[in-house]
Design a protein around this nucleic acid. Sequence first.
DNA 1: CTTGACCCTGTAGTCGCTACGGGGTTTACG
DNA 2: CGTAAACCCCGTAGCGACTACAGGGTCAAG
Lengths: 155, 155
Amino acid sequence: MKIGEAAAASGCHLETVRYYERIGLLPKPARTDSGYRSYSEDDVRRLRFVTRGRELGFSLEEIRGLLQLSTDSTLSCSEVDQLARTHLAEIEMRVAELQQMAHELRRTIATCRGGQRAACAILDALWKSTRPGEADAAVQPQQRRRLNVHGHSQN
Amino acid sequence: MKIGEAAAASGCHLETVRYYERIGLLPKPARTDSGYRSYSEDDVRRLRFVTRGRELGFSLEEIRGLLQLSTDSTLSCSEVDQLARTHLAEIEMRVAELQQMAHELRRTIATCRGGQRAACAILDALWKSTRPGEADAAVQPQQRRRLNVHGHSQN
DNA sequence: CTTGACCCTGTAGTCGCTACGGGGTTTACG
DNA sequence: CGTAAACCCCGTAGCGACTACAGGGTCAAG
């Protein structure tokens, strides 16, 4: 199986497969005489494991760990369980954050009367700080969270 | 006001302020004789506009647009409104995706009996593809979405 | 025998920062 | 007045998870 087929079979981008190999997430596959990568069914299964993990939002490092846990027979299931639970908690936190953002945005949009720029409620909301107290809280600076919304589709 | 104070006053990292300047999101500030950046109240307001926009999940390019819209008096509020609505829709989509992920993870975790690795339901779920049909859908490859969970706190 | 689809390597770009190295300046304390 | 700590400067490189491109090689069909 050549790389293009393997990529299609696992639902990820061809160049991503090479990327996963480069960072050591996938083993180096066999090669044809002309140097083409040649994937076995097992290779494809492993690749699907990775893409499936990504779909569930695991980082590549987490997936690396999961792969190790699932091939090292001395380790128990509880570590996997722990990783999954921690990960779930992160997702839930992230959902809550995004919902907060959505809530504020909806509120702001609702105030907009569609009039002139000078009276735009959305821009106003951005020009004003949420909690006016924190402007002079020069004591403890950067403890703020950053949130990616752009999460980020290819296509 | 020096850069450290400006950063604290707007709640963002000092180096981020320089970064925003470098990419042209903030105007180049005045300088002291010794070359230190010196920020006015207006500069700080603009910086807060940016950080507030980031908190609402706007990209820096979107914020650049919002800043332009809010200083160009010939443009109406409706473009701002449109941007905000589009952005809100993206956030909502993202929330739905994350909730789907959380749902699947919860389901998978619940199946885990805490036994031996060989019987780990979580790893099993990763080794199996969700919809078995798509493995041989070699026709249309990469139309899959990528989702960042790690969204991404500093500190 | 040529065309086009596929494959190769290596490198650079994306986004939104963050961190570092190697300096200069300012300020508070003794 | 000296000096140490705290601040600032610039430039560049790193992060994660890809994606894209340049400049080639290979292979099957017509």
